[in-house]
């Protein structure tokens, strides 16, 4: 765990010292604020609905941010030739992947924390519960974790950051649209595809202030599964070369 935290700290430092990290943060916060004003605040609404709308729009920014944050995790190191430092060290592949994931997730959480002023404005001027706020942010954090895990996996496979972002974006979009596919499939298979839905099936409950255990398990399993696959990709590099 110490090794994973060491790697996570370096990863986080990498985001702060690169202009791309700050640019991702600034652009998405700007778009977030604009979306909040244009859509969440539009018209006469109850504060509950405003907060729900905020979480709806913020989830999009979170998914985009996660893909952009994760694209560099392994692809950049392959391009810079620094991955060999980790590969030649006694660190286990699992420690490397966990460390990089934690670093990227910590940076995403910073993005989420930086957006807190928007729902706090709703809390101050309206009537929403802390529980709603907590559930919404828990959902965002878990959604982001799953997207970062997908991004990490694609980054371990892709030869460069752009390819990693495109591949991860494609998987995320496919999972977001799974409910559409599920509507056209009958029986158990349709249920399975519907359950795989990243957004509609699992995130909406969080945005309404409810924490469902099945959704927590879904995001946890998705994150774990993609991180495990990333560990396998790194392990395979020792065989392939």
């Amino acid at each position: 765990m110490t090794t994973a935290l060491l790697i996570a700290r370096r990863e986080l430092r990498g985001y702060f010292s690169s202009s791309s990290g700050w640019i991702i943060l600034a652009v998405l916060l700007l778009l977030d604020g604009l979306a909040f004003n244009a859509f969440a605040m539009a018209g006469e609404k109850k504060s509950f609905d405003v907060l729900q709308n905020f979480f709806y729009w913020h989830s999009g920014a979170t998914m985009v941010a996660s893909v952009f944050i994760a694209m560099r995790l392994f692809a950049e190191e392959k391009q810079l030739g620094t991955l060999v430092l980790l590969e030649a060290s006694p660190a286990r592949e699992a420690e490397v992947v966990l460390g990089k994931f934690l670093g990227a997730w910590a940076f995403l959480l910073l993005f989420l924390v930086a957006s807190l002023y928007l729902p706090i404005l709703v809390m101050v001027n309206g009537k929403v519960t802390v529980g709603h706020l907590f559930a919404g942010y828990l959902g965002l954090a878990m959604l982001g974790a799953a997207c970062i895990a997908i991004g990490a996996f694609m980054s371990s496979l892709a030869p460069n950051q752009v390819a990693a972002a495109v591949l991860a974006g494609a998987v995320v979009v496919a999972l977001v649209l799974a409910w559409l596919v599920a509507r056209n499939i009958d029986g158990v298979l349709g249920d399975v595809v519907g359950w795989l839905d990243l957004f509609d099936k699992h995130y909406r409950t969080f945005s309404r202030g409810t924490v469902k255990l099945s959704s927590v398990v879904y995001y946890g399993a998705l994150t774990y599964g993609f991180l495990l696959a990333t560990v396998a990709v790194l392990g395979a590099r020792r065989w392939r070369g």
Binding site: R10, R13, S18, L80, G81, T82, S89
Partner: peptide, 18 residues
């Protein structure tokens, strides 16, 4: 094994921001 070895590849694995 890796604990006992220090490896410098043909391109030094260095992080420019450090």
């Amino acid at each position: 094994l890796r604990k006992r070895i220090g490896f410098l590849p043909d391109r030094p694995p260095l992080f420019p921001e450090m």
